[in-house]
Design a protein around this nucleic acid. Structure first.
Length: 355
DNA sequence: TCTGGGGTCCTAGGACCC
DNA sequence: TCTGGGGTCCTAGGACCC
């Protein structure tokens, strides 16, 4: 494969930044987007917060009740997906123009393969600056960009300096750039894997790069080999738009844990309705239904069934979901969350040609 | 601290078929 | 009577991403 130049563009505190743009009066104040804090008794988590809120220790993913304790005076806002999706689409359209290959990564991130658009990393830097300017001028939003010889390095680089950062890592700088960083910075190394690696004495990406691959492979399977490659800055994966969606699901956490099983079943029916609507809108059919239950102690289970036929009918979904839920309702335990997901999808067109 | 909601992919065991 | 090997599908759980 010839040399590649890849960008990873990451919008800075996207949800909070969009809210600040829409409400100039929030400027300079801590803003927390997420669940309703309900005076500190709310359930759910912080989705995004701005840098003023971060000064108080608030972080995304944190329970909203804790955020409330840290910063009761912040401006708390619900997640306004409609607004973020609209803004995101415009930003993605800008980014797409500059790439041979483009890959959206959530609402606020994207990979761009610009290999044929620039001749070297110098030109890449100019292009990245141009993109940042254009987004700022048209959307009043800032982003951080990482530039590297592959997706992995670009992704780590975009996180290196925030907000408003631009970090360029050419082929020769890859190893020295990655080596001192904690393993957690790598894509696919989350909390659990970080802990396991730390227990093995592996703290930095450099440690991981020099660790015995056979031991990693024994401990983590194929991912072990992957970790080692990533740590050495090797990543052959292509920038590619995602294909067809594989499942559609909805879930909800009750305001209070409940043993009212009628409420659970009715909620399941409503969730099924939303799922079915989306399946129909996407002109798809499903075959597998999976119900998810979370008990009050956070113990979470899934129970699924693949039907013998493809369908998009609401009553098929509701009936199957209700049947599957019985397994948990018999247990006489309080329920925190219920969800339903449809998978093994096929498009209606595709199905017609099969039958 | 007390943990959302939308997804994807991997693993491991069992069923079933040839 | 004790038992192969490969392939595919299904199920449940877990880890990860934003």
């Amino acid at each position: 494969m010839s040399r590649r130049i890849i960008f990873h563009v990451d919008m800075d505190q996207f949800f909070a930044a969009v809210e600040e743009r829409e409400h100039p009066e929030f400027k300079g104040k801590p803003v927390v987007v997420g669940a309703d804090p309900k005076e500190g008794t709310g359930r759910g988590v912080v989705s995004t917060c701005n840098y003023e809120a971060r000064k108080f220790g608030v972080r995304s993913g944190m329970p909203i009740s804790r955020a409330w304790k840290l910063c009761p005076d912040a401006i708390y806002l619900p997640v306004n997906f409609k607004l973020y999706i609209q803004t995101s689409s415009r930003i993605m359209a800008i980014l797409r123009k500059y790439a041979d290959k483009f890959e959206r990564w959530g609402l606020d991130e994207a990979f761009l393969d610009v290999s044929s658009r620039v001749r070297n990393f110098e030109e890449a830097k100019k292009l990245a600056e141009k993109i940042k300017r254009e987004i700022h001028e048209s959307e009043e939003l800032t982003c951080s960009i990482g530039v590297g010889p592959n997706k992995l390095v670009a992704k780590v680089a975009s996180d290196f300096k925030k907000p408003g950062g631009l970090t360029i890592v050419d082929e020769n700088a890859v190893k020295s750039f990655l080596a001192p960083l904690p393993v957690r910075k790598l894509l696919w190394v989350g909390k659990k894997t970080e802990r396991k690696l730390n227990e093995m004495g592996i703290k930095t990406i450099g440690d991981l790069a020099t660790y015995d691959v056979s031991v990693l492979s024994e401990r983590f399977g194929v991912m072990g080999v992957q970790y080692n490659l990533m740590a050495r800055g090797v990543d052959q994966s292509e920038v590619a738009e995602r294909g067809e969606i594989k499942s559609v699901g909805r879930e909800t956490t009750f305001e209070e844990d409940t043993s009212d099983y009628n409420l659970v079943l009715e909620t399941l029916d409503k969730l099924s309705e939303v799922v079915q609507k989306e399946i129909v809108e996407r002109k798809m059919l499903f075959k597998t239904v999976t119900v998810k239950i979370r008990f009050e102690n956070f113990e979470t289970h899934t129970h699924g069934k693949t039907r013998s036929f493809f369908t998009d009918r609401l009553r098929d979904l509701q009936k199957t979901a209700r049947e599957l839920a019985q397994l948990y309702l018999r247990q006489n335990r309080k329920i925190r969350l219920v969800g339903v997901r449809a998978s093994t999808l096929t498009s209606r067109k595709e199905q017609k040609t099969l039958t």
